[in-house]
Design a protein around this nucleic acid. Structure first.
Lengths: 104, 104
DNA sequence: TTAATAAGCAACCAAAAGGTTGCATGTCAA
DNA sequence: TTGACATGCAACCTTTTGGTTGCTTATTAA
């Protein structure tokens, strides 16, 4: 889980996921286009995403195809965000009450 | 949005959120208990959470009370995770098909 | 076979993150 | 008013992160 959160912390990596979401199975070269950044930098970002199991890759000839794996992101939503969502209204109410109270 | 993702990337900060979720309005001293880490380190982590608007704080006398703000987390779920969830089944199917295909 | 294309590897560097320490400030209670 | 408590500030250090460059390897197409 830590790897997933860390992977998502970088905007470049989130855009890479966005790109793969738009069109799955892109090669490294394709994913490297449109950045002001070297191919190696993108390669590293993709490695981070693979370590976090957010992207899977397959070699086809001299190309490397990349596929988005949405499962870990979905797990964040289910196991971590849902928790706070459940308490959302209560927490907001508590916050408001606390801020309005003279003694804190 | 970037600040929120970055804030969530650190396990210490996620545990801090968990603690506040369990009991809202804790003081700095309370939140500093139970770590193998200095008070200053926790203070910094809380500052990151505040910058990301995940935690709000109020001073009461010499104490500083901390409150969980679940809204940004909820927004991640709605604006970012939902996107991939929608395409989840399709993406998985694509992945499977691609991996099983001889030519990639 | 040879040249171009796609990707991998490794060393290196700067900046940011995470942590520490020491000291200062403000508040409460005796 | 004095001491203890709760927190704030700032300098400093180490490790990680994000990026670069140069070179190598492997595949494809001419």
């Amino acid at each position: 889980m830590d790897l997933v959160f860390k992977a998502l912390a970088d905007p470049t990596r989130r855009v890479l996921l966005d790109r793969l979401f738009k069109r799955n199975g892109q090669t490294l070269s394709e994913l490297c286009g449109g950045w002001e950044m070297s191919r190696q930098a993108i390669t590293k970002h993709l490695a981070v995403l693979e370590d976090a199991n957010l992207v899977a890759s397959v070699k086809r000839g001299r190309e490397k195809l990349h596929y988005l794996n949405p499962v870990p992101i979905n797990e964040i939503g289910e196991r971590w965000i849902g928790k706070y969502e459940r308490g959302r209204l209560k927490a907001l109410a508590d916050l408001k009450r606390s801020l309005e109270n003279d003694d804190g």
